[in-house]
């Protein structure tokens, strides 16, 4: 347990110290949200708002997670000798979930500031965001560990993670559509359970499969 907390603390410190990646993510969010704002001359209808928001979230999450691994091979070699893969992946899942949540909340803030907020049920929407982001973060954590083994870099990462992200995004969009009052059938509970079960499965698979990706 202590090891897990120690890894999370290390990751946070690393993230805060490398000011370059911080600024890059902030700039990415700001410019991508502003471009969305510029493109629309009048108020967005709820459906477009919904679609656009989740596309933004996916791209920001991809960008944010790509920075956290690159150029740290030497450091990883050191970590290999200290902790077990299970502890490492738990720490990474928690850290990436928190980090991604923070980043996407900033994006959400910027998005409602510029584009507007037609939501009629904010608490449920925030809950949806929490679970979706957690799922996206864990999925990207595993697919990045997979992609890091191949020689395709960021392109390979997007190719292998986009298809698997679709289930999460579909359930997120359904829940958000319910929060936006666009005519979708179904209730909150069933969709939320589906979303959470997807999250749990992604996390469980990451935990089980990561040891096989651990060192060569």
């Amino acid at each position: 347990m202590n090891q897990i907390i120690a890894i999370i603390q290390r990751e946070f410190r690393h993230e805060i110290r490398s000011r370059k990646s911080w600024l890059a993510i902030l700039l990415y969010i700001a410019s991508i949200v502003y471009i969305c704002y510029l493109g629309f001359h009048h108020d967005l209808d709820a459906e477009t708002w919904n679609t656009l928001f989740w596309i933004l979230v996916v791209f920001i999450a991809m960008f944010a997670s790509s920075g956290s691994f690159s150029g740290r091979e030497a450091e990883m070699l050191y970590i290999y000798t200290l902790v077990s893969p299970q502890k490492f992946i738990i720490a990474r899942l928690i850290y990436n979930g928190l980090f991604m949540l923070f980043v996407s909340l900033m994006a959400f803030g910027g998005y409602i500031f510029f584009v507007g907020c037609p939501l009629s049920n904010l608490p449920i929407f925030l809950l949806t965001m929490l679970f979706t982001i957690w799922g996206i973060a864990s999925l990207l954590t595993l697919s990045f560990s997979i992609a890091a083994k191949g020689a395709g870099g960021f392109a390979l990462m997007s190719i292998i993670s986009f298809p698997l992200l679709i289930p999460l995004l579909i359930s997120a969009q359904h829940l958000a559509a319910l929060c936006l009052n666009i005519g979708y059938t179904g209730g909150y509970a069933g969709n939320m359970v589906a979303l959470i079960s997807l999250d749990v499965i992604v996390a469980a698979l990451s935990y089980l499969l990561f040891p096989y990706l651990w060192r060569d």
Partner: peptide
């Protein structure tokens, strides 16, 4: 999970 379970849950 997505093909078999999800459609039943999400209604």
């Amino acid at each position: 999970v997505f093909v078999m379970i999800y459609p039943r849950l999400s209604e």
